[in-house]
Nucleic acid binder design. Structure first.
Lengths: 334, 334
DNA sequence: CGATGTACGGAAAGCGGTTTCACCGATGTG
DNA sequence: CACATCGGTGAAACCGCTTTCCGTACATCG
């Protein structure tokens, strides 16, 4: 390629000229939509190859009214949970020739609606991952976001396909596990207050802890450092078991306990949520609730893909997470 | 929004008609490029608002010859290292209104050139992250990929802006650290053979281990499970210290040692590379070499952004990683 | 052998914006 | 008062491709 030659200087017209046919024919050859005389086709192929022609995706997008791009909006690209979902979508979409535009709202709920719209406008569809906005806001926004699918969030009255996780079931499994181990006082390291799934977990916790053990809730966050920072506060409440909002928080707590010489699970039990890859490799291996993260992404894509094809999307799905008992929980020492 | 009304049915012409002006004027108002009579501007604004008009990003892209999208190609979206780079780029680009298209080559070097081109075609520029392709291939491809920047890889004779890490320095620091602790036999859990950075690490290891300790190389991989699986093999060689290709591998090994009751660092020292967030929260906290991952992404964006603006990009940068001595290394017990 | 299909290829009209260009009336100047 | 200047505006070309529409050539049929 000569210097100065802009990457996209060679257009369909150039190919047409070189092959002595009309642009329409070049288009036909490139898209194999309509039959073209074999001789012409050959000339076009050759001209295209020798000129290094690649159709402009933007122009195709405009003409076809479809970009083969989808957006995904996540609250935090730093969270392995969302990375896995992204990965699941990216893989599944890639197979069908779609690429993924990723936008991170940096846990700023107020920015979300704007970002969602903005990013949606650039693509054919949107995957909204654990949106932090209120139901009301999402309902109002829905029209402008369509087609989109919702991951990890259920909104009453919203027609969008949804793939979710039954967090309540996961929490109940966790509660039963800890109660079964004889724990009488449990601390919950709470996630972002704007997070609906945090709210759900809290509600379920309160309901199912009732009569089994005392529950103390501590504000924490969704990251390692939040768990690290909150760990000794949690211990200070007298709790013998700690439930992290997610694995990151639980692993952060684990790290802190290790650092200050508190033995897990001998002195205190710790559990997480999500079963990110690291949970299995932590020491001690983290007891947690396994959420099929990549599958969430994949199922999300299946639904979006169906809508894009104009088909009826598969029914909403709600994964029931599985308790993974590992080494970070033990019988109440007291 | 009425059902059936396609998201983008309202065009600039509709707004123009409603505001009784020409499409050109609407465009001017929307872009604030040229001054427009305040009264007309008001009419346009109002018409746009009441119709719910949003300019089509695709049409703008075609007309302006620029999409405000950039691509990033990574070998493995499951690797925290690349996730961090992605995050760095996404943040930095977002500030300037650019969005990021992400493509995962799934550690398949043969697919890389195709994917790179394909994804590049859809955007204004490309960030190639740790490409696994051969120098020669990259050189040939360069013309078609421009503008692009190279992360984590240096290619002789390639004019593209590059942001890299001085892996050799990192390895030397690691070697000095382990030698200083009296280790006489070290095992290296090697990464993907296609990875150039793995090759560099190997070369540097061989060179700098010379005369200080015996070096055994074991084929491993780049993921947790690879490290987990290789850990006892490594121990079996009689090595008293283990260098993982990256933190994932090292953490996997840590997990295995914990599982089989081998004490780190008392019986064996383990070090990683990258300093992903989890390294700090592992137990024991992982000694590793800190690579400024998000900064890599950010610097990559600075360069791409400059090129996109038609400016001279900042000079290539090569970060010197910093040895992070934590708890997974100790004096040779033998 | 004329009528009817069928297959193919080119002209041209979009897709939804941006931008050049020419025009207009209203200023500013000598 | 004539003339250059200038901000504001619309018409139209254009970005690069797809797709409809139509004309042509040729094969098939009654």
């Amino acid at each position: 390629m000569e210097p100065g030659e802009r990457a996209h200087s060679v257009t369909i017209r150039d190919v047409a000229r070189a092959a002595q046919v009309s642009p329409a024919t070049v288009s036909r050859v490139m898209n194999r939509r309509s039959t073209v005389d074999v001789e012409l086709a050959r000339r076009v192929q050759q001209a295209a190859a020798s000129l290094g022609y690649h159709p402009s995706a933007i122009a195709q997008g405009l003409a076809r009214g479809r970009t083969e791009l989808v957006s995904i909006l996540v609250p935090d690209l730093g969270n392995p949970m969302f990375q896995s979902v992204l990965r699941g979508i990216s893989r599944a979409a890639g197979v069908e020739g779609y690429r993924v535009l990723v936008t991170d709202s940096h846990e700023m709920p107020l920015e979300e609606p704007f970002l969602a719209q903005e990013t949606r406008l650039r693509t054919d569809g949107l995957v909204l991952c654990s949106p932090r906005s209120h139901d009301q806001e999402l309902l109002e926004l829905a029209g402008k976001l369509e087609p989109f699918v919702l991951v990890n969030r259920h909104v009453e009255g919203l027609l969008a396909p949804t793939v979710a996780v039954d967090y309540a079931a996961g929490i109940r499994a966790l509660v039963a596990h800890l109660a079964g181990l004889g724990h009488r006082h449990v601390a919950y390291l709470s996630g972002p207050m704007a997070s609906v799934s945090n709210q759900q977990r809290l509600d379920t916790l309160h309901a199912s802890a009732e009569g089994r053990f005392e529950l103390t809730v501590l504000e924490c966050g969704s990251m390692h450092e939040d768990g690290y920072e909150a760990a000794d506060r949690a211990l200070g409440t007298g709790a013998t078991a700690i439930i992290g909002y997610n694995d990151l928080v639980a692993l952060g707590a684990l790290g802190k306990f290790h650092a200050i010489g508190v033995s897990v699970p001998d002195q205190v039990s710790v559990v997480g949520f999500d079963d990110i890859a690291f949970a299995r490799y932590a020491s001690p291996m983290l007891t947690t609730v396994a959420v099929p993260q990549e599958a969430l992404g994949e199922e999300a894509w299946q639904r979006l893909s169906a809508v894009l094809r104009g088909e009826e999307p598969p029914a909403d799905v709600c994964f029931t997470p599985r308790l993974e008992v590992r080494q970070s929980t033990a019988r109440n020492p007291r």
